[in-house]
Design a protein around this nucleic acid. Structure first.
Lengths: 241, 241
DNA sequence: ACTTATTTGTTCGTATGTATG
DNA sequence: ACATACATACGAACAAATAAG
């Protein structure tokens, strides 16, 4: 709204910030690595050092970088890249990016299927379901909380199994399911509610990515439908088309 | 907390709300259609009508439904389903779901490529780029704002073309590009900044879905990289794997 | 231990475009 | 039309911390 440049409607410092954020997001500047010095960035973008400082300040506020007087500004982004594909397994994905995956049961119960969930799982409404609420973390930091529904007929006591195994893949393996795949994924974002914020250790008002999904076995039979809420600031999804 | 049930850590009213929201999200309850009556829903879920009322109240607060005394509760979710796939075109997607797509140029300029963007477009840093900031809407309601970068060598004056055509597909067609595809898509969420919130007509603190993408032509040459911010409350992505 | 160069942090000053009243 | 306030942007200088020799 104020001082513009080349009739683009965007402030200079914001353009610099966007550029840097992009560089961090796509791995051009890796986690822990040093950004170019403020004067270098200023020269690169053809702006004053103050402008760069303001850009960096906004990134630092959001926790993407950390400035150290005398040595430099370092990337401090723990955002995990999480591919959405046919084979989507939390522990695999987290493990592949060099972090230690862990899971924790929040609650489990047996419920009657609501019509919407029943439709997804291709069972009759009112059929018995196992509900599993779980929190998943990478290197101890909570990444997501998920609410899972499984047909109780096939997966009775799945909650108890999950509590022991702390992994959905292992729980399903206990029932003889050695492979399964993602049938569909739907995704949006919202503000974390109080309990999710607490479990994800997020400040109130933080955005979460809400992922609805259905997993099916090798024969295409639905086995699991879930709603998973990811701490948006800790994850970045990639879509493989 | 509140009233619990079957030692699941989730309040009854929240379970009902989740169930209804799910039904709306997956089209089980369509836009504009009437929900079952409160007493019906209460019977279906085996809860008291007060519980249902609380669930509906939270949905109404978030603008998903609209309760009308004497006639019923109606789905009022303008959340558009937006598939992320190889062929991702705004106007096509919006048009296919029965809405009228429109675009509006916010600003355009020629800039020198920052190294990150240059890497995506496979050009040398410092090469001239056309930057196009645009807002896109469905039936007049803003859906997203996007910042697009195109190599100026191939697409000089793309900004002017876009201003006239108000569609990126048509703009590219003007340069002889009849087909293109999405090379990659990265996705996360954050809180809308002031200018985005204004342009998307969102309250401050609203979440936006941030989509980074690269489009390439039929020969695989990069033609366009963009960062698009969607009003999270108005859109739902589907991932096709 | 000392020097030197680099880098972030801070404080002046100056100028300009936008919004408000 | 004018004054005021505010955010943006640039320039110069110096202080303080760090790293390298």
């Amino acid at each position: 709204m104020t001082m513009l440049h080349e009739d683009t409607g965007v402030a200079l410092w914001r353009r610099v910030a966007d550029s840097l954020e992009r560089g961090i997001a796509d791995g051009h500047y890796r986690q822990g690595s040093k950004l170019p010095s403020e004067t270098e960035i200023a020269e690169l973008h053809g702006v004053n050092r103050h402008t760069v400082r303001r850009a960096i300040a906004t990134l630092a506020e959001r926790g993407l970088v950390r400035a150290e007087r005398g040595s430099g500004t370092f990337v401090d982004s723990k955002r995990l890249t999480y591919p959405l594909r046919s084979r989507t397994r939390f522990s695999e994905i987290v493990g592949a990016s060099g972090h230690e995956a862990s899971g924790q049961l929040i609650a489990t119960a047996t419920e009657a299927a609501m019509s919407e969930i029943a439709a997804h799982l291709k069972i009759k409404a009112g059929t018995s379901l196992v509900r599993i609420d779980a929190m998943r973390a990478a290197d101890g930091t909570p990444l997501c909380v998920s609410t899972n529904f499984l047909p109780a007929a096939r997966f009775s006591d799945a909650g108890l199994i999950y509590e022991r195994k702390r992994s959905m893949t292992k729980t399903l393996a206990h029932y003889g399911i050695r492979d399964y795949r993602r049938a569909w994924t739907r995704l949006t974002a919202t503000i974390a509610d109080a309990s999710d914020a607490l479990r994800l250790k997020l400040p109130v008002g933080s955005p979460v990515l809400v992922v609805d999904s259905l997993d099916v076995d090798t024969k295409g039979r639905p086995i699991l439908t879930a709603r998973t809420r990811f701490a948006a600031e800790r994850v970045q999804f990639t879509v493989e088309t």
